[in-house]
Lab assay of single mutants.
Amino acid sequence: SFQYVPVQLQGGAPWGFTLKGGLEHCEPLTVSKIEDGGKAALSQKMRTGDELVNINGTPLYGSRQEALILIKGSFRILKLIVRRRN
């Protein structure tokens, strides 16, 4: 089963996490790295392996390109929903 975790990061880029996968690579869009001391790490809500399913209220369909555009369009606040295996 899965758990959906809301994450809100503040203060602008860099957000402190790296993505891998996506439709382009025929795999889920997941968090591959969280930078020590970065905003994602400080939130204590994101983990490597989390799947990104929503950015700023926009549902994602797995495209890494789409996710990067939405993330780049976030100035002060980035709201994410990640899906994690229980």
Results as ranks from 00 to 15, higher is better:
K79N: 15
K72M: 09
I81Q: 06
P28A: 09
S63G: 09
A67W: 05
M46S: 01
P14L: 03
S43M: 02
R47E: 13
G22Y: 04
Q8Y: 15
R84D: 01
G37K: 10
G57I: 00
P28D: 10
I34N: 02
L80S: 03
N86F: 12
G38L: 02
L9C: 11
R47K: 12
R85N: 08
R85A: 12
I77C: 13
G62L: 02
V31I: 14
L29W: 02
L42W: 08
T18Q: 12
L19E: 05
K20N: 11
L52I: 14
Q10T: 14
S1T: 13
K39M: 02
Q65K: 12
Q44A: 10
G62I: 04
L78G: 02
G57Q: 01
Y61T: 15
S1V: 09
L9Q: 11
R83A: 03
R76V: 07
D50L: 01
Y4E: 06
Q10W: 06
K45C: 11
G12H: 07
R83S: 04
E35I: 14
N86W: 14
A67V: 01
G38S: 10
G62D: 08
S32I: 12
L80M: 11
L78H: 04
H25G: 13
G37Y: 10
V7P: 08
D50A: 01
V31C: 05
L29P: 03
V7D: 08
P59I: 14
A13V: 06
I69T: 14
S32L: 09
F17C: 06
G22W: 03
R47H: 10
M46W: 04
L9H: 10
G62T: 04
S43R: 03
Q3T: 13
I77L: 12
W15I: 11
A13L: 06
T58D: 01
Q10V: 14
T18P: 01
F75G: 15
I71M: 14
F2A: 04
Q44L: 12
S74F: 02
K45W: 03
S63I: 07
G38R: 01
P28F: 03
T30H: 11
Y61A: 15
I81D: 03
Q44T: 11
I69P: 08
E66V: 07
D36G: 10
R83K: 13
G38I: 00
T18C: 14
I77K: 14
P28R: 04
F75N: 15
L80T: 02
T30Q: 09
Y4P: 02
L23N: 14
Q44S: 12
K79C: 07
V7F: 14
G49Y: 07
V5A: 06
F2W: 09
D36V: 13
K20D: 11
A13M: 08
N56A: 06
G37C: 08
